[in-house]
Amino acid sequence: MDVIRFRFDGRGIEAEQGQSIGAALIAAGYRSWRSTRRTGQPRGVFCGIGVCFDCLVTVNGSPNQRACLTEARHDDQVATQEGAGRDHLAG
């Protein structure tokens, strides 16, 4: 199995080729990479198959990517998503 490397909030993460970002983060010991819009609660993978939209993460600057479906790619920059992930758009 080929190993690829990506960054999560600046830290190096190893993933097997074909793994989702969510699976790779769980394998690396992380459980959450999003805080909710209303109460700031931590969230990670729940349904694991793209249905619940709980595991949203920012990948290479694009917010709201489902970590459970998005395949990890070499040199990806993955970041914890705060709220809707579009705070930078607010005045």
């Binding site: 793994q19 969510g22 459980r31 959450s32 969230r43 993978v45 694991g48 198959i49």
Partner: peptide, 23 residues
């Protein structure tokens, strides 16, 4: 049930079958 680490049964299985990762 919203705490990270609570998964759907299918989600826990999908991590394992699809990615080789234990939840």
């Amino acid at each position: 049930w919203t705490l990270p680490g609570v998964f759907t049964a299918g989600g826990a299985q999908a991590l394992l079958k699809g990615h080789g990762v234990l939840p």
